[in-house]
Computed example of a mutant assay.
Amino acid sequence: MIIMIRFGTIGTSKIVNDFIEASLKSNQLKVTCCYSRDKTKARNLINKFSIYAVATDKFDILIDEADAIYIASPNGLHYEQAKYFLSQQKHVLLEKPLTLDFKQAEELFEIAIKNGVVLMEAYKTIHLPQFKHLLDFTNSYQPFMINLNLNKVTSRIKNLKNRIIDNIFDYELGRGSTYDLLIYPVELSVALFGKVESVKAFGQKLENKSGLTDCVIIKHQSGVISNITCSKVTNGIIENEILSDGLTMTFKDLINLKSISIHKHNDPNINELNYEVLENNLVYEMLVFTKMIETNDYALRDYLMNISLEALKTLNIIEKEQNQ
């Protein structure tokens, strides 16, 4: 028997639009309530997708209308909002990063355990079908290094040049590239190679200490080294690669994992791997989240949360290294 899970959403950004669009393809969840500080924006979102849902600017309405909450507010608001809903015994799908502070994220996890609910970070990459190709390569060929590049000009670049600080570059709400973008390669590295042993990091920042660019080297306890470059003020074109003895795996777009290929050393032939992915790939993380709720799969919850916590702890170390 399929359980229909009622979802409330917080925020009206593009990612929330994508979430609602993905929900329409699911027979396991239904968006029943949309929250925004500006109630009109919530109503406009509901009308855009022609869904039957309540528009609200009050959290207690979300409590009444939903079994689970998707939180896509600015990073600096994640902790208080997630804590409130977890304490009300609501499942929470929380946009990345979980919080800006490891201790706060750890506390959220403890509250989820205490209340017997699911908390999951909305980090979609490891839920994509093609992630298995990266994991299989890692398990089969014991790579010793990974090079990851995520350099993408922010849509707020014009405001930034005019010294207008949007939420993402506000130190209390976003902290720039270090938490908004670097989370992707760091979490991918942790998911593939495990716990972090040591970190070396440099960065370029705004006067308020929010990140613009990040250069990071991570040594994992497994011995693998992750070499990462990340920026929100320039566009990069270099691919990503996982290097082992005899074989190298390359892929584009480390968020969505595209064009995955295996190159054998001293062989000009390229083995491009095949896979099919839904156009709106948020569907995969939503399926994992709803299945955990339906089956009470707390072991999977804990496994995924430990990856998210290790990644966030590493981001905190990176920020400290850069500030020194």
Rank of each mutant, 00 (worst) to 15 (best):
M1P: 14
I3M: 12
M4I: 10
G8P: 12
I15R: 15
I15S: 13
S23E: 01
N27C: 15
Y35F: 08
T40V: 15
S50I: 08
I51K: 00
A53V: 02
T56P: 07
S73Q: 11
P74W: 12
P74A: 08
G76R: 05
H78G: 07
Y79T: 01
Y79F: 05
Y79N: 07
E80L: 14
Q81L: 11
Y84S: 06
Y84M: 04
Q88F: 09
L93G: 10
P97W: 00
F102T: 11
E107K: 14
F109W: 12
I113V: 15
I113D: 15
G116R: 03
T125A: 07
L134Y: 02
Y141Q: 07
N147P: 06
N151C: 09
Y171S: 08
R175K: 07
T178S: 11
D180V: 15
G194P: 00
K209Y: 09
G211Y: 05
L212N: 01
D214R: 15
I218S: 01
K219S: 05
H220M: 04
I228V: 07
T229N: 10
S231K: 00
T248L: 03
M249P: 03
T250F: 04
N266I: 06
P268G: 10
N271Y: 12
N274K: 11
Y275P: 05
V283E: 06
N296I: 07
A299Q: 14
S308E: 04
L312M: 09
K320D: 05
K320H: 08
